[in-house]
């Protein structure tokens, strides 16, 4: 081995450069694949009536060619996006606050309190996570109908129907319990010695320590509501003014007199629905990514 002369550093370096080059090219190619739908959505939304029906499609529009008016048509159009967005924000806020509260209380009981049947009950919850939601949807639809929240639906009925079934989540309880468990017992003992009640301990110590997890839960839950489609579609079928954005988007028909779909207006609407998510994502990337990575690790 020692006989081999090692003057091949340049060769090694060249090989490394080539490997790197291939690596970055592949990553870039996939990055483009990921970005294209967004790009195409925005691009199409800015095309004018003529441009959108030209084949082959143009890949690029100069700013002077942008048809911003499409967005005005969306906002002021027949489909009340403003109202749908408001509905979504209200539903999102209420269900998120509810979920976070019930989750914190339940996670605390599972993480800190000692009661008969705790572990068995917890196992039952975990097992329930495996059951597909469709098993619940049928009965839940019957239930909210029976409560009178579907037919002749008032705004208040709609809010109840869309929030109450989602005011708690086994997955989040599990997730938060894991975080609570990492808080050392000694803190609890110290608080007990100081005469702190369980409730005060939960709010003053555990919740602040677990804040990052709670923020993650809040974001994921709110985003989930923003994307909800099936359930709101079911429960607002008799009063379409109570729909959420996804339903509004899919339900609206953008066609011209000739029956052609107006893709530019459709994509403008899609982008209006997408934009808030992108903004939230870019602002709160850290929390969202952490939640996702963690949920994988514990699996």
């Amino acid at each position: 081995m020692s006989e081999i002369l090692y003057d091949n550093e340049a060769k090694i370096r060249r090989k490394q450069m080539i490997t790197k080059g291939i690596l970055y090219s592949l990553l870039t190619a996939f990055a483009i694949f990921i970005v294209i739908p967004f790009y195409w959505m925005i691009l199409t939304s800015l095309k004018d009536a003529e441009e959108v029906f030209s084949a082959p499609p143009s890949l690029w529009l100069r700013p002077s060619e942008w048809e911003i008016q499409n967005y005005w048509l969306i906002i002021r159009g027949e489909v009340p996006y403003g109202r749908f967005m408001l509905n979504t924000v209200v539903v999102s806020a209420i269900s998120t606050v509810g979920t976070v509260l019930t989750t914190i209380l339940a996670a605390f009981a599972f993480a800190r309190l000692n009661f008969r049947g705790r572990d068995a009950f917890f196992m039952v919850l975990i097992a329930t996570m495996m059951i597909p939601g469709e098993m619940f949807v049928i009965t839940n639809f019957l239930t909210v109908s029976w409560f009178g929240w579907v037919a002749e639906q008032t705004y208040f009925d709609a809010i109840l129907a869309m929030t109450l079934p989602f005011m708690t989540s086994i997955f989040y309880i599990f997730f938060l319990r894991q975080t609570f468990k990492t808080i050392p017992n000694e803190l609890y003992y110290a608080a007990k010695v100081d005469g702190t009640s369980d409730f005060m301990y939960l709010w003053k110590i555990m919740v602040p320590i677990a804040k990052p997890t709670i923020i993650t839960i809040t974001i994921l839950n709110a985003m989930g509501t923003w994307n909800a489609f099936i359930w709101p579609q079911l429960v607002t079928q008799f009063n379409e003014s109570n729909r959420l954005v996804s339903n509004g988007l899919r339900g609206a028909a953008y066609v011209d007199e000739a029956g052609r779909v107006l893709y530019n207006e459709q994509m403008a609407a899609a982008f209006v629905v997408t934009l808030p998510l992108l903004i939230v994502f870019l602002l709160l990337k850290k929390y969202i990514m952490r939640g996702v990575s963690r949920s994988g690790i514990k699996g």
Partner: peptide, 15 residues
């Protein structure tokens, strides 16, 4: 690569 996680399936499906 994380972008698709946060998007609305209806909107992107239409795109």
């Amino acid at each position: 690569f994380f972008l698709p996680y946060v998007t609305n399936a209806i909107a992107i499906g239409m795109a």
